[in-house]
Amino acid sequence: MAGIGPGDIEPVRRLKVADSVAAQLEQLITRGDIKPGEKLPPERVLAERFGVGRSSMREAIRVVEANGMLRTDHGRGVFVVSDKKAMPKLSDLLVFDDFTVPELFEVRLSLEPDAASLAARRITASEASNLQRILAEAENPQLSDDAFVKLDAELHRAIVAATKNTLLLRLMESVEPLFFKYSHRVIKLPGRRAHAHAGHVALCQAIIGHRVRDARTAALSHIRDVERDIAEHLEQTVERR
């Protein structure tokens, strides 16, 4: 790209398989499935049970150990030393009762860029006005996080409705309860609300302007942005320990 040097672009951090495995392992410990004092199965066995490679399993163990919940005794194995750690826990951000955030991101990446591009082709003037209304309400700094999350969901639903594709809308509605669960947790990350609103503005401007390519790109960037915020927060949490 002309005019942009190698040092001008920061690589986007993505949530890794190890993050999700670490979060699930942490959850097993906090709910008592694996108790303090117990020894974990060998790395090979754990990797098979989680369905991941041994390198991802090894990295996940290191993350949970950095959180003070595991201890590695060389020659003996890995032991649980605590069922508690300082908040926020990895499982608070990545694991829910019925899904993981990486799984939710996979679904969003499959649906939202296509929905945004279709909406950019088909949106009506009244639908565009509705998006602008939602953005204006979400911009209010006095708005509670709960109200912001509701507007966030309303915005994404309105974008999918603008595609005029009823099956896409049904898929969106089926995912919406999971979206609410996840959004109420990640909205508390530093800067997340401002980043989310900026992403919404860029996305809606492209859709309202009928810029099909830009709409797809903005939807993708919006999802990658929250993924990066979570990954950076997890990195900082580990570094502080």
Score class of each variant (00 low, 15 high):
175 V>A: 12
175 V>L: 15
178 L>D: 11
191 G>C: 02
181 K>G: 07
204 C>T: 12
196 A>M: 08
203 L>M: 14
186 V>S: 01
204 C>N: 14
202 A>H: 10
192 R>W: 06
197 H>G: 02
173 E>L: 14
191 G>Y: 05
196 A>D: 07
185 R>D: 09
194 A>P: 00
191 G>N: 09
188 K>W: 07
178 L>T: 04
179 F>V: 14
190 P>V: 09
199 G>W: 02
203 L>W: 06
179 F>C: 05
182 Y>H: 15
203 L>P: 08
186 V>Y: 14
195 H>W: 06
187 I>K: 00
186 V>K: 09
190 P>L: 08
197 H>T: 02
191 G>Q: 03
200 H>S: 13
175 V>P: 01
183 S>M: 15
181 K>Y: 04
183 S>H: 10
176 E>A: 05
186 V>P: 00
189 L>Q: 09
198 A>V: 02
197 H>A: 01
180 F>R: 15
193 R>S: 11
176 E>C: 00
185 R>M: 06
197 H>S: 00
202 A>K: 13
189 L>H: 03
183 S>L: 05
184 H>L: 15
195 H>T: 11
176 E>V: 00
190 P>T: 06
196 A>H: 02
204 C>F: 05
192 R>Q: 12
178 L>W: 04
203 L>H: 07
176 E>P: 00
189 L>K: 06
192 R>V: 08
188 K>Y: 11
177 P>W: 01
179 F>W: 11
203 L>F: 04
192 R>P: 00
181 K>F: 02
